[in-house]
Design a protein around this nucleic acid. Structure first.
Lengths: 222, 222
DNA sequence: CCTACCGATCGGTAGG
DNA sequence: CCTACCGATCGGTAGG
């Protein structure tokens, strides 16, 4: 068995195979599933299609995942964990540049980062979580909910302080839900530039402008 | 055949049957499909389930609709047409109460009405259009897009004037998309009260408050 | 609109 | 991870 694997993985540095490889294949399945679930939806994507996309046979994904829903869960958890980590990093980096940040600036960072999570590279996983979480079992949905809360936790104190400073023109909770909605919905209309040639520039610009517009729209003028 | 139908439809006033009945059955299918597509998604709902819900046999929906996607299309078009009409009515009624409305008030009416379309009674159809339009053919999607434009058309002049009056703190186009997003996303979190007993009051209140919060959040303070 | 039916596809499994 | 396979379900149709 391990001979067969070594044959296929030509030229790869020989490590303690069975482990590293399994991780790679698993990750490949998650990536392929993420892309297909995002583009076609969970129900409209067959496990065969996912398998083909990573060069496997029809039944092989079930060696890595118990069933199709576990694969969906893996995609969503992967996306949420990435988002939580990168959100922390974004806040820390901004803090370095601007040691005494205003709450307004902090919200700006959160919004800009969130748009990147939703629309930037590697945004398939979160897209799946936003629009396909319905297909999860209730137990899985609960876990997803907890991770989402963890992500949103960074926003609460910022919005609370902005509200205390009278920069928010609506009740905090409603404001938070409406703001998240406005941002999450961008997935529906903010088309990414099709090719990857000069896309890096136009993309960045678009996201920056959009983040500014959102910040200005939601907060009272300074 | 018509004897059998007359048997089932006990007590219905005898009209030129075949026509009125066909319309009824067709509408029943659209209503059932709307509910199931909204609750379970398009792909997760079988035509058999829809048929059972209106007391038909497995193959019978295809007497009224060529295929499953045509049924989806009918649901969405139904929802959009209702929304367009009721939006006109809402604006006219508000105009009667308040002959010289401000643009701010007009936006308030649009927001309040839109929330009712999204969350009020009979909101299944629009929910389906918001989250299942992806499953349409491209030709159908084009028509849906035109109808959506027709619905949004009422918003454009209002937002334009608010922008001219400097009541909007962001570029008009971005503002419009963000506002629609914030409202459309409410479908994801605004849970309707479960029972229908005293729900009418709490529901109205909730929607009114939410509409106010949205209006205040998006516009500069007066 | 029902009866009876079909081909295709799908998630998942046994056994290596 | 492949081969070979299965039961179930599904959209859709013919024929009345």
């Amino acid at each position: 068995m391990s001979v067969v694997q070594a044959k296929r993985a030509r030229g790869r540095p020989k490590k303690t195979e069975s482990e590293k490889d399994e991780g790679n294949r698993r990750q490949a399945l998650i990536a392929a599933a993420g892309y297909l679930f995002k583009t076609q939806g969970f129900d409209a994507t067959s496990t065969r299609e996912i398998a083909t996309r990573v060069g496997m046979q029809a039944g092989s994904p079930f060696y890595h995942f118990g069933n199709k829903q576990d694969l969906l869960m893996a995609v969503i958890v992967e996306g949420l964990q990435q988002a939580i980590v990168s959100q922390h990093v974004a806040l820390l980096l901004a803090q370095e540049d601007e040691p005494w940040m205003s709450e307004r600036q902090r919200l700006g960072v959160l919004i800009r980062h969130h748009l990147n999570v939703l629309l930037g590279p590697n945004s398939d996983f979160i897209g799946v979580m936003l629009y396909e979480a319905r297909s999860l079992t209730q137990a899985h949905r609960l876990i997803v909910h907890q991770l989402s809360d963890e992500y949103e936790a960074a926003w609460i104190p910022v919005l609370d302080k902005l509200s205390q400073q009278d920069q928010l023109a609506a009740p905090v909770k409603a404001a938070r839900l409406l703001i998240f909605g406005a941002l999450n919905w961008t997935v529906q209309w903010f088309a990414m530039p099709p090719s990857a040639s000069k896309s890096k520039d136009t993309q960045r610009l678009g996201l920056d402008e959009l983040a500014d517009a959102a910040l200005q729209l939601f907060l009272k003028p300074v």
